[in-house]
């Protein structure tokens, strides 16, 4: 009996998703953004088929070759095909973006749920930690974390992820404070549903919309931050075909070989543009109050 009554809000929460799909499809920006992301994901999945060469194959004779038919984006200082490296870089950037945002959103949601639902000391302690983290501009915190963990791609994702936690924690805590006063939560509490179950089964589904909006808007920032840290040598290490790293490696050859830095940069812009357009679209549809 209790189960049937209490499951209702969560099911009602699922219904709006079905209603939202057509609205997302009507949003031009969201459609273009998802198109870009889908195309990039396909390229990333089929990178071995799409890329004409291995991204790490060195051919000194062909070094610093300008773009032509064989090398559509030219070659770098080691004669590696820039086009193949850009293609292989797509999977790295997408994975870095997803995992960093995944870490930030999951941990941040956990902190926000606990702080918001339980309140009291747990709330005070967690929110003070969050306040301290917010005192550091995002990329600076990520740098400090990388400096402790050591520069490589895995630590980069952890660092960018951790530096994003406070935003989600605050967002979720705010939504939980509203949601926990709702009648269905009170009803669940009255019939003796344990707090853990209330938080996960009844509150979480009802605060998920702002989390999705924040995650989709935060993805572009995470990809940019990761590329920036790799650019200054605090992320992926050679010979990984990571876009930020490639840009930095091409810097010394800018005068004679503009293509080494230019194409990976364009790839970053395209990816982040796609993610941001999709994020803007989801925000307009899911949570128009956040619109700026």
């Amino acid at each position: 009996m209790a189960d049937v009554a209490l499951a209702a809000p969560a099911r009602a929460g699922a219904a709006p998703w079905a209603r939202l799909a057509p609205r997302v499809r009507r949003h031009k920006g969201a459609v273009v953004g998802s198109g870009i992301i889908a195309a990039l994901a396909l390229v990333a999945l089929g990178q071995n088929l799409v890329a004409p060469q291995s991204p790490t194959r060195i051919d000194i004779v062909a070094a610093l070759h300008p773009p032509d038919r064989v090398h559509p984006m030219g070659t770098d200082q080691y004669g590696r095909d820039v086009y193949s490296r850009v293609i292989h870089g797509s999977s790295i950037s997408l994975v870095v973006g997803f995992i960093s945002v995944g870490i930030a959103a999951t941990a941040g949601t956990g902190v926000g749920l606990v702080a918001g639902y339980y309140g009291g000391r747990a709330d005070g302690l967690l929110m003070r930690i969050v306040d301290v983290m917010l005192a550091f501009p995002g990329i600076l915190l990520a740098q400090a974390i990388v400096s402790v963990l050591g520069p490589n791609l895995r630590n980069l994702m952890i660092a960018v992820g951790i530096s994003g936690i406070p935003y989600y924690a605050r967002l979720v805590r705010g939504s939980v404070l509203v949601a926990k006063e709702q009648l269905y939560v009170e009803a669940a509490r009255v019939v003796g549903v344990p707090a853990r179950v209330i938080v996960i089964r009844h509150i979480l589904p009802n605060v998920v919309a702002p989390i999705i909006v924040a995650a989709s808007l935060g993805m572009g920032g995470a990809i940019l931050a990761a590329a920036a840290l790799s650019f200054i040598g605090l992320g992926s290490q050679p010979p990984t075909p990571e876009w930020g790293r490639m840009l930095s490696e091409g810097r010394d050859y800018l005068r004679d070989a503009w293509w080494i830095s230019t194409f990976p940069g364009a790839a970053i812009v395209l990816t982040v543009l796609g993610v941001n357009m999709l994020g803007d679209g989801l925000r307009d549809v899911l949570d128009p109050r956040l619109r700026i």
Partner: peptide, 22 residues
């Protein structure tokens, strides 16, 4: 503005160097 938000500052910096300096 959308492109500006999506563009890494370090890439824009390199493009500016390429155009205005080199």
């Amino acid at each position: 503005a959308l492109i500006g938000v999506s563009m890494p500052s370090f890439w824009l910096g390199l493009l500016l160097i390429l155009l205005f300096s080199l």
